[in-house]
Design a binder for these strands. Structure first.
Length: 201
DNA sequence: AAGAGGATGCCCT
DNA sequence: GGGCATCCTCTTC
């Protein structure tokens, strides 16, 4: 099978919903201190910039934290949640339009032993990488990676040459965004149907 | 300068 | 299935 690193053009498109779906089945790779870990993306959520009340950038809110979302697509937005969890997002679109896609779950691929150690586990189960904070810990991603270029050699995403058909994608409401009013009901959470590696709720 | 709350996961029954 | 850990970010005084 042929794996090719996604190029900048992939992220620069002005269609966050499409990109969030296309990320399913892609492989996210992380190389930290020479240790390679990777997983197949099985769950994502779209956060569509200024119009989306669930987005950190709702209403064009621009702070030190959200600054990265306003850069051109193809970089990572990693922020801290509940004071202890690093959550990994892919920034999309062009300069000035703050779109970001949260990666919520992956299926472990390479470097499983390293992931087990990072997660303090001794056996492989969905809890190893199901959940946005779980997968970042497994991949060794922290807020230190905020703003990093996804075309580089530390964190990147690969196309495995597999086209996932629409019928294998489940769309539903996003997790933990009840404060977002009517935007809370938007079906912008995407999962691969029948995957055992998605997060629960 | 201070306080409230958050795109959660763990560890226990 | 439920309580708790734990600290940064933003808003407001």
């Amino acid at each position: 099978m042929s794996a090719s690193k996604l190029k900048r053009d992939f992220y620069l498109r002005n269609n966050i919903i499409l990109i969030a779906q296309e990320l399913l089945g892609k492989r996210i790779c992380s190389c930290q201190n020479g240790k390679l870990t990777s997983g197949i993306i099985v769950e994502t959520e779209a956060y569509a910039g200024p119009e989306d009340r669930a987005s950190h950038a709702y209403g064009g809110k621009r702070t030190q934290r959200t600054e990265v979302m306003y850069h051109s697509g193809g970089i990572a937005y990693v922020y801290l949640c509940y004071g202890m969890h690093s959550l990994f997002n892919v920034v999309t679109n062009r300069d000035g339009i703050p779109h970001a896609i949260l990666v919520r779950a992956i299926e472990p691929d390479r470097g499983v032993d390293i992931m087990l150690r990072r997660r303090n586990r001794n056996s492989v189960s969905p809890s190893l990488t199901a959940g946005p904070a779980c997968l970042t810990q497994a991949l060794g991603i922290t807020t230190a990676h905020n703003g990093i270029n996804l075309a580089g050699k530390i964190i990147w995403i690969e196309d495995l040459g597999i086209k996932l058909r629409k019928k294998y994608i489940i769309a539903g409401p996003r997790v933990g965004v009840s404060y977002a009013g009517k935007d809370a009901a938007l079906p912008w959470r995407f999962k691969i149907r029948n995957s055992n590696w998605t997060s629960k709720p």
